[in-house]
Amino acid sequence: MSTPCVLTVEDLSVGWRGEPPLVEHACFEVKRGEVFGLLGGSGSGKSTLLRCLVGLEEPLAGRLDVLGAGPPRLDATRPRYGVMFQAGALFGSLTVGQNVALPIQRWTDLPRAAVATVVRSKLRLVGLEDAEHKLPAALSGGMRKRAAIARALSLEPDLLFLDEPSSGLDPVTSAELDVLIVTLQRALGLTVVLVTHELGSIFDIVDRCALLDRQARCVVAIGTPRALAASADGRVSGFFRRASGGA
């Protein structure tokens, strides 16, 4: 029996109204339990596509199904997916613990002590149990990303969207974050959709990926990272060459 899909994208076009689409006619599926990468150079539309997938933007055209519930609807029901934004998007006036507690308080009637227990368990998952009472400004870049992942996990999502988790991090911290993502994904049985252009992350944690091309304004290849890296298509091989620092 084939693995069920948790995300289906059919003929999707995304961009800003009144301007040429950034991505046209995108088609791909994300299977349960896999780490799916959205790859592409700067300006290829991968972050805009992600914003459509999580419901922050309306697609220009096409069909989208997230977790079998059709297009994502925000503020309607408890989100079954978590989102980690590029810079973390933690609320600066709240402590790390309060940031993680926020969605739990929004969607459950748990008493305060129980919320605190859940929060501590999430922070322990990402190795931040000591940072519960710190403000985000007191954390390093890598710790902020971990805290954002903890918040994204707070509602026990089936699907996790990560927007460039490695951006702004040094290679060591970036590799540690990759290990954390894979560990959590396997332990919690998550499906992860990851936007990245970091070659290390692509080969280390991505099972399958779709490559977006700015010039072509579409998905030019879908497959495993190794298959794409060996592609004869100049647009695909060119991306991997540039991402590895080649000319």
Binding site: G55, L56, L74, D75, F85, A87, L90, G92
Partner: peptide, 17 residues
Amino acid sequence: TMRVSEEIDALRTMGFC
């Protein structure tokens, strides 16, 4: 500042209006 640092987007994805 919350808007440019995507905090408002984060609120929306957590189901807050």
